[in-house]
Computed example of a mutant assay.
Amino acid sequence: MTIPVSGQVRSMTGFGSISFQDDYGCQNWEVRTVNSRYLEVKWRIPGYCRRLEHAWEKVVRSRLARGRVDISLDLRLSRPDVVCPTLDIIQAQGILNQIRELAGKADLPFQPDLNQLVHQTSLWRDPAGDLPKAMVQSLGTGLLMVLDDVQEFRSREGCILRDDILARLERMQRIVTEIQEQVGQRAPRRLEMLRERVNTLLQDIKIGSDGASLVLDEPRLLQEIALIADRQDVSEELTRLSAHLEESVRILTELADSGRRLDFLFQECLREIATCGNKVQDADLSRDVVAFKAELEKCREQVQNLE
């Protein structure tokens, strides 16, 4: 089997981290990815960056196809003024005026304690919408850098998995070829063995007063053998199996998002080889079927980690 490798297969397991300094402070990004059927993104970022999550998630989805992704940002600011929350002065003044009016009507002294405004979260506006444009761009650059780093990790892991699966696909193709050869060689022998068994049975059965043996009806025997051979024929299954293996190699070497496609094809391979095992009544061929299933099961385990 010729295996030209041109695709970029990636594992869903990966780790990436970057740190760099800009005019606003030091960004420390970290990304961890593990297996998942779909893409799940979890964020651990400062509260003033929450409004950027939606835009950032689009960036992540443009780079990653599957896996659970945990992204954390530790931002050490050198300019605290850029994220300083702002007080809603109009609303705060209105509250003070209402309390002052209430105190006047109740003829009570009123001395406002402005320190209490610090605890009134509703009076403070989240600074995320007011982050400097240059800072937002710098944070976006940091995110792209850490995604590139984790993709390099996932690509290296993917190459290891790809090579292992390709080696197993080659072994499975050799097993299929051996089964095809053995099936072709054993057909004439099965025919001769069946004829001998039928002759032996007929000779043991005596009919009539002279004890004559039954005579073999060759056309009828051939008809029955044809029916048995048809029930045990696995040529179609082996042809489809070979096609599935060839397609698996193409997907693995030419496509980046190969995980789900291979998972489906390997299920089809399992169905075809199971049918072969049920049809073929031969100890040697059964051992080949078991060997094929063992390799296939290892491939199915490995492909669960491919993106």
Rank of each mutant, 00 (worst) to 15 (best):
K293C: 03
V146P: 08
V280W: 00
L123K: 00
Y24A: 11
I228H: 11
V136W: 04
R51H: 11
I179S: 07
P85K: 10
S248R: 06
I165C: 08
E254A: 09
Q27K: 14
L227W: 14
M135R: 05
I225W: 12
Q180M: 09
Q151I: 04
A294E: 08
I3M: 09
D149W: 07
T239Q: 08
R10L: 06
D23F: 11
R68S: 13
I45H: 11
T33C: 14
L255P: 01
D23G: 07
Q98H: 05
A226R: 08
I3F: 10
I205G: 06
A167K: 15
V215I: 10
A106P: 05
I179Y: 03
L214K: 06
P219I: 03
N115G: 06
I18W: 03
G158A: 13
P219N: 08
C26W: 14
A92S: 10
S235Y: 00
R197W: 01
V150E: 03
T239R: 04
Q21V: 04
E192Y: 08
I273T: 05
V69Q: 02
R261W: 02
Y24R: 06
L222P: 12
L227Q: 14
R51N: 12
E272C: 01
M1G: 14
L117Q: 05
A92P: 06
R168T: 00
S155V: 08
L296C: 02
S19K: 09
Q304D: 03
N97H: 11
L147P: 00
T13Y: 09
A167W: 05
L201S: 10
D81P: 11
K58Y: 15
S36T: 07
Q116P: 07
D149G: 07
